[in-house]
């Protein structure tokens, strides 16, 4: 009896570790699902927008420590991370992306260049060493629903944040006038233009929103790991795979694929080394994509 319960708690803890990875991956992928899935723009600098969010949180925490509101800062940091990443995304769209909508492969190269510049800028401003913000007290403890089960509060917080943000994105995309405009623009740009939608404005806001979501992902990321100049770029390929694997333009697909990939990876990590777990997960994803290129859940869009 005692052994089964140990096994159970181990499995539960393992599943929870997978849930934390799932949350961060999904937060990252949501922004990309909007930018890549809806607009078809490849933003290789998406990881750097996450890093912007993480560094914003770091700055906020240092500021909060100096002024004594460390317990309340995290909510402010989330808002600031979103706002700054949103503004940076808006600027990037205005300066660069809008000139390249007709050349998706070139967008990929240009945004890779942007990511290099941003990484070097981070390195010069914040240094090459990884930093992590001071966590407020309520985020550092752990929650014990039963003896032997130890769930870190920060992981729970990331989970809740993920649920809230996903719900928000769903509301915006499928239950708001703005969402209708975005989907109309995706499905048929010319007709959308003709019925009076300002498609250029929709493009700009959509791109900026995707970047803002990456900023939130970055803020959430600081609670479970430390941030360095290249943190974002480590996630970029995984995030793209999540979106492609789920089926572009499908919110549900993105959630399902982030869940599958995260659980597979953290489950396999339990059985073997981290690098082999990653290799097996990615190989499976690539093989499935080769058999089913449209992803798990594809939405039929007239091109």
């Amino acid at each position: 009896m005692a052994e089964t319960s140990t096994l159970f708690t181990t499995l539960l803890m393992q599943g929870f570790a997978g849930m934390s990875l799932f949350s961060v991956l999904l937060l990252m992928a949501l922004g990309l699902a909007i930018i890549f899935g809806q607009m078809g723009v490849i933003n290789m600098a998406h990881g750097e927008f996450m890093t912007i969010g993480a560094y914003t949180t770091y700055i906020m925490s240092t500021f909060a420590e100096a002024h004594g509101f460390i317990n309340q800062y995290f909510i402010l940091a989330l808002i600031a991370a979103f706002a700054i990443a949103f503004a940076a995304g808006y600027l990037l769209e205005y300066l660069l992306i809008r000139r390249l909508y007709k050349r998706p492969l070139d967008t990929l190269l240009a945004t890779w260049g942007v990511s290099l510049v941003m990484q070097q800028a981070f390195r010069e401003i914040f240094g090459a060493r990884e930093v992590s913000p001071a966590l407020p007290e309520w985020l550092t403890g752990s929650y014990q629903p039963a003896p032997g089960i130890d769930l870190p509060v920060s992981g729970l917080m990331v989970l809740v944040l993920m649920l809230v943000v996903t719900f928000g994105v769903w509301l915006m995309m499928y239950r708001s006038r703005w969402g209708i405009r975005v989907r109309a623009t995706t499905q048929n740009r010319v007709i959308a233009d003709a019925v009076g939608i300002n498609t250029k404005r929709v493009d700009r806001i959509t791109f900026a929103l995707g970047c803002g979501l990456a900023g939130i992902a970055g803020a959430a990321f600081t609670t479970i790991a430390s941030t360095g100049p290249t943190t974002g770029s480590l996630f970029i390929v995984d995030t793209f795979l999540v979106v492609v694997f789920g089926g572009a333009a499908s919110l549900f697909g993105t959630i399902a694929s982030a869940f599958t990939i995260a659980q597979a990876q953290s489950g396999l990590e339990f059985l073997m080394t981290g690098s082999m777990a990653k290799v097996i997960t990615l190989v499976s994803v690539v093989l499935i994509l080769m058999m089913r290129p449209e992803g798990l859940f594809s939405v039929k869009v007239r091109k």
């Binding site: 390929v237 690098s275 990615l282």
Partner: peptide
């Protein structure tokens, strides 16, 4: 197009992780 670029990139990543691991 874009999908091919992403898949080839993923394979490059897999191979690197495999060699390093």
């Amino acid at each position: 197009g874009v999908y091919f670029a992403i898949i080839t990139q993923a394979i490059a990543l897999i191979l690197t992780v495999l060699i390093v691991g």
